[in-house]
Amino acid sequence: MPSETPQAEVGPTGCPHRSGPHSAKGSLEKGSPEDKEAKEPLWIRPDAPSRCTWQLGRPASESPHHHTAPAKSPKILPDILKKIGDTPMVRINKIGKKFGLKCELLAKCEFFNAGGSVKDRISLRMIEDAERDGTLKPGDTIIEPTSGNTGIGLALAAAVRGYRCIIVMPEKMSSEKVDVLRALGAEIVRTPTNARFDSPESHVGVAWRLKNEIPNSHILDQYRNASNPLAHYDTTADEILQQCDGKLDMLVASVGTGGTITGIARKLKEKCPGCRIIGVDPEGSILAEPEELNQTEQTTYEVEGIGYDFIPTVLDRTVVDKWFKSNDEEAFTFARMLIAQEGLLCGGSAGSTVAVAVKAAQELQEGQRCVVILPDSVRNYMTKFLSDRWMLQKGFLKEEDLTEKKPWWWHLRVQELGLSAPLTVLPTITCGHTIEILREKGFDQAPVVDEAGVILGMVTLGNMLSSLLAGKVQPSDQVGKVIYKQFKQIRLTDTLGRLSHILEMDHFALVV
């Protein structure tokens, strides 16, 4: 994948999101292997301009796509893939009243899908469409860049269908997702969380590099694949309309690839034109409109599966009536509230959605109805927002919020430890010299600072030695090549209790 991002070429006709291997024109390309080798690009942008032909009021008969309808489940399912879809609609009884809503608040519980998330729908649909058009064949390999849930859905379907599955996901995604993927037989590649989507090191860039190296491999490409919004247009939206008897006044959905909100909203605009569509985008993402909503100094966020630093091709923002931004604290607070007060075992993005819903639905009156999409299960986040310690460490809970008995030293300040200034190293000294210094002084790690004293990161003896043994660096290389740029900081005025929580999850903390 090139470091400079080429513009994806656009073909003359058809839909841009065809499933299957992508040609340089962004659509299915038939021909000899030699032709494909000559024409197939190194990668295709996940934010390529959409060429979708959908228009409100256009006859369904003019759609270029294969459409399906929700099917009634048999008493005995032939395999677990038949437990994807037909998820329950559940009334939220307490939270709406707590925040003064007059309307009825309903939750579409997508964590009841077989793999635990709304992404099971698009995973199965992308595979079925690729099999139907002859792209996927027995023994082929599926590769997908994902925040985890699409990966789980694909790995689940691949396990049943017999495909090899490789999932490329950023490091910030939970260990629970990784464990589930491994249990399903998927191979996992992790990428830096802070890598831009168009960087060769991003999950998108690495996935395309693997595709170019592995024979008979395919990126189904949830960011561009029409099967993504079509899955929701054909099934999720129809289920909502049936469950609500066609009567709903507002739908609120958090947005990642945009397939969920695009597919549902398009069908609702056709069948229930008075329904307002509300999009939820986390602070630090750029999906919301108008652009002024996205202006923030924050560039990272903890909530998973929603928000991006690019506009995915499948996201149709014209069908969203209003956007709201959400933050991590309210997302996790509301997710825990949904679990504790409503018994809905949902993930953090569901918290984002409901946090926005109780604001947006203030305009609705008694007798009206708001539906929220709860995308995934708490299963993926047992060591994250479900953990009091994690919430404390991230600053989303305060010590006084917890009532468990603490040891005698818990409320003492870090400054009472009488710490001395640490050994520091410059980023320009060599790895070999740094190892000598650390061994001589008896230290395992040291902060790396520039000549102005600005902290650049941390270097550890173990990481340097393993990097040297693996051949990633040489003793003569500058130590700046092996620094940890993500590390926890703590102030002298913070409590030892807070430091204790940090050290339970990290090997060190830097006192500043």
Results as ranks from 00 to 15, higher is better:
residue 27 S to N: 13
residue 133 D to M: 10
residue 157 A to F: 03
residue 239 E to S: 01
residue 202 S to E: 06
residue 212 N to H: 04
residue 238 D to E: 11
residue 115 G to N: 08
residue 135 T to M: 12
residue 106 L to H: 10
residue 221 D to T: 07
residue 64 P to S: 04
residue 25 K to S: 09
residue 77 L to W: 03
residue 3 S to Y: 10
residue 177 K to C: 00
residue 192 P to R: 09
residue 273 P to F: 06
residue 81 L to T: 08
residue 211 K to E: 11
residue 32 S to Y: 11
residue 41 P to D: 08
residue 116 G to L: 12
residue 58 R to W: 15
residue 216 N to A: 08
residue 155 A to C: 10
residue 22 H to S: 04
residue 37 E to Q: 13
residue 215 P to I: 06
residue 223 Y to R: 01
residue 73 S to A: 13
residue 125 R to Q: 08
residue 39 K to M: 13
residue 244 C to W: 03
residue 136 L to F: 08
residue 161 R to W: 07
residue 240 I to Y: 02
residue 77 L to G: 07
residue 119 K to S: 02
residue 16 P to M: 09
residue 180 V to P: 03
residue 95 I to M: 10
residue 174 S to M: 01
residue 15 C to F: 12
residue 137 K to S: 06
residue 95 I to Q: 00
residue 6 P to Q: 09
residue 77 L to T: 05
residue 105 L to R: 05
residue 141 T to K: 11
residue 121 R to D: 02
residue 47 D to V: 05
residue 220 L to F: 03
residue 67 H to P: 04
residue 231 A to W: 03
residue 197 F to T: 06
residue 153 G to S: 02
residue 37 E to P: 13
residue 135 T to K: 11
residue 236 T to A: 05
residue 119 K to P: 01
residue 86 D to K: 10
residue 247 K to Q: 15
residue 273 P to S: 11
residue 123 S to L: 05
residue 24 A to T: 14
residue 142 I to P: 02
residue 232 H to D: 00
residue 73 S to P: 12
residue 10 V to W: 11
residue 170 P to L: 03
residue 126 M to P: 04
residue 2 P to R: 13
residue 242 Q to F: 09
residue 204 V to M: 11
residue 234 D to A: 09
residue 3 S to C: 11
residue 3 S to K: 10
residue 152 I to D: 01
residue 57 G to F: 09
residue 127 I to M: 07
residue 169 M to L: 14
residue 30 K to F: 05
residue 45 R to Y: 03
residue 210 L to W: 04
residue 266 R to K: 07
residue 83 K to W: 08
residue 82 K to P: 09
residue 222 Q to E: 05
residue 94 K to E: 11
residue 246 G to T: 15
residue 234 D to W: 03
residue 242 Q to V: 11
residue 110 E to N: 02
residue 242 Q to C: 15
residue 225 N to K: 01
residue 246 G to W: 01
residue 91 R to Y: 13
residue 246 G to H: 08
residue 58 R to Y: 05
residue 3 S to T: 11
residue 210 L to C: 08
residue 165 C to G: 08
residue 35 D to C: 03
residue 26 G to R: 10
residue 199 S to V: 02
residue 233 Y to S: 04
residue 181 L to A: 00
residue 64 P to G: 05
residue 131 E to Y: 09
residue 276 R to E: 04
residue 169 M to G: 01
residue 258 G to P: 01
residue 44 I to L: 09
residue 4 E to H: 11
residue 129 D to Q: 12
residue 62 E to L: 12
residue 233 Y to H: 09
residue 155 A to G: 08
residue 182 R to E: 07
residue 248 L to A: 06
residue 195 A to H: 06
residue 83 K to V: 04
residue 186 A to I: 01
residue 143 I to L: 07
residue 58 R to Q: 15
residue 94 K to T: 15
residue 96 G to K: 09
residue 29 E to V: 12
residue 248 L to P: 12
residue 128 E to V: 15
residue 140 D to C: 07
residue 67 H to R: 15
residue 103 C to N: 01
residue 61 S to V: 06
residue 176 E to A: 03
residue 107 A to C: 15
residue 148 G to T: 01
residue 265 A to M: 04
residue 197 F to S: 06
residue 138 P to V: 08
residue 47 D to R: 05
residue 159 A to L: 04
residue 155 A to Y: 02
residue 70 P to Q: 11
residue 10 V to H: 02
residue 4 E to T: 05
residue 171 E to Y: 06
residue 71 A to Y: 11
residue 120 D to G: 06
residue 137 K to D: 08
residue 120 D to R: 04
residue 167 I to N: 08
residue 162 G to Q: 07
residue 164 R to P: 08
residue 203 H to V: 01
residue 268 L to F: 07
residue 198 D to V: 03
residue 63 S to I: 07
residue 97 K to C: 05
residue 179 D to R: 03
residue 97 K to G: 14
residue 167 I to H: 08
residue 9 E to A: 15
residue 230 L to K: 07
residue 46 P to V: 03
residue 86 D to Y: 11
residue 255 V to E: 07
residue 154 L to W: 01
residue 251 L to M: 11
residue 8 A to Y: 10
residue 160 V to I: 10
residue 247 K to E: 08
residue 274 G to L: 09
residue 168 V to S: 02
residue 48 A to V: 12
residue 166 I to Q: 04
residue 53 T to E: 09
residue 10 V to C: 13
residue 66 H to D: 12
residue 204 V to N: 08
residue 129 D to K: 08
residue 77 L to C: 08
residue 266 R to T: 07
residue 234 D to S: 07
residue 244 C to F: 04
